[in-house]
Amino acid sequence: MTETGIATPAGVLTGWSASRRRAKAARDEEFTAFVESAGTRLRRTAYLMCRDWHLAQDLTQHTFAKMYAVWGRIRTGTNLEAYSRRVLMNAVFDQNRRRSGSEIVLGELPDRPDGTPPATPELRVDLAEALARLTVEDRAVLVLRHAEDHSVESAAAILGLSTSAVKMRNARALSRLRALLGDDFTGP
């Protein structure tokens, strides 16, 4: 065997590659336009889930990559925004599972299972930190419902939960958030 037997492609092959190249260029252009319109919001959603802009960037890229891999199938007839949230949340959950052995330790605020607000202002946390103290599933519900304004039904579809599970998680997470944010979190 030698490498010298490699010649130019036969005519048919050249034809195939040329038409494929054109189709790929059109597909890539469409995909790029989608990333440009949806990228910033998706990255911010990822940030709310992980509180790290670099990781958010990676998760966003990975989400778009998975969508690109099946772009031909999803580009029409699919709610791309909901689809991207679902892929992103699954990536976040995966990430969370992988790290569950070394769960993130956050600050000195003690857990308050009874939900009482922190006693002193110094212990107050901002929203991103408060979110990080919730379970990843509760965090996902809050982010989808309140940062992204998805309906209960839409959030349920994205997360693969029942609507009642979304409502229950939402109520529970909100009360916990209220406790963590203390006076900053006004409202009923």
């Binding site: 890539d28 995909f31 790029t32 990333v35 440009e36 990228g39 910033t40 990255r43 911010r44 940030y47 709310l48 802009w53 960037q57 966003t60 890229q61 990975h62 778009f64 990559a65 998975k66 969508m67 690109y68 891999a69 772009w71 901002d126 929203l127 991103a128 979110l131």
Partner: peptide, 23 residues
């Protein structure tokens, strides 16, 4: 407010990187 410190990112680059990884 929580996302107000978004450092920003070139979305064109993001698309490129996603296409490479997606391929």
């Amino acid at each position: 407010q929580a996302v107000s410190d978004d450092p920003g990112f070139a979305l064109g680059d993001l698309a490129q990187a996603a296409m490479v990884e997606g391929g």
